[in-house]
Design a protein around this nucleic acid. Sequence first.
DNA 1: GAACGATACGTTATATTGTATCCTTCGTTG
DNA 2: CAACGAAGGATACAATATAACGTATCGTTC
Lengths: 158, 158
Amino acid sequence: MARQLARTAPLAAKWRKLAEGRCAEKGERLTPARLAVYAEMLARRRAVSAYELIGLLEKRQERKIAPLTVYRHLDFLIRTGLVHRLQSTQTYLPCDHPDQAHESQFLLCSSCGNVDEVESTGLEALLSRIADERGFRPDNAVVEVKGLCGACAVEEQD
Amino acid sequence: MARQLARTAPLAAKWRKLAEGRCAEKGERLTPARLAVYAEMLARRRAVSAYELIGLLEKRQERKIAPLTVYRHLDFLIRTGLVHRLQSTQTYLPCDHPDQAHESQFLLCSSCGNVDEVESTGLEALLSRIADERGFRPDNAVVEVKGLCGACAVEEQD
DNA sequence: GAACGATACGTTATATTGTATCCTTCGTTG
DNA sequence: CAACGAAGGATACAATATAACGTATCGTTC
Ligand SMILES: [Zn+2]
Ligand SMILES: [Zn+2]
Ligand SMILES: [Zn+2]
Ligand SMILES: [Zn+2]
């Protein structure tokens, strides 16, 4: 079917394997449409808004794509841990720590827009402790630090 | 003028004093419209969306209020530290630690919607350290933990 | 292979959240 | 009062996200 042969951003074997593995673990189906969205995000390697992503996909596939379609694919990618959603900017970013599913923390540069995904078990432990002290049962934690990345901080010193 | 005499939610002296103090510090003007929005939020003491707030104010004042108006008042309240914005739910909550301006962390109950504002200097220090290790210059940190509050966690044990 | 239920996809419309623009009003200051 | 800048109001619009409904595809069972 023509639809499924639509152009897709190139996707390194590494990422395809990762996606296949996650789907196998979680009993999810890895369809061409889902893979196309993932590939498009990986082609940028930066945080994109849902509507930016729609634009990119429409350009690549030369057809209209409804918002709902992309939101469903994003839901899937987030469910499987392949993509994170940045709450403070309402953007989406492919996971950069593909070894295992995880909680992440993010450093967002307000100058260049770069996002650094970090993992600190110490931080997670501390958050757990804080919640526990208050009888709160944590499910997941959003940690997003805004500021200047190293490169931008240096530039600013003029 | 009739407009300024419109009904306003009752506002305890404590909060009015706080608002006056913050405005004096920051050279901001505490107008009746601004105070009315603050009072409306304090009357709920829970996180509300901007449009919920518009509805509440329209009902109270018996007139139409444009979104931009409320967003400007929210900007003011956030600038002065009287209100926080919860990034993960796009809602707004009056500050519960009025002693000084601060970074906060939030525990959001996904069952009852209650939000607990906590302050942990340990957490702030750790976040600083994490950023520092990566050459990142932090400006502000969003920390929002979703889960079940004590009361809801107990209920769920049926 | 046919029937079936579950999951995924497509289409249209709509809800929710947030801004741009332009003009008016208010409060201060000279 | 005149001039100025901050605040407020009205209208329109942009950006983000979901609802509702039907169709297609996949995987299983018979
Ligand atoms: Zn990750
Ligand atoms: Zn930067
Ligand atoms: Zn606070
Ligand atoms: Zn609760």
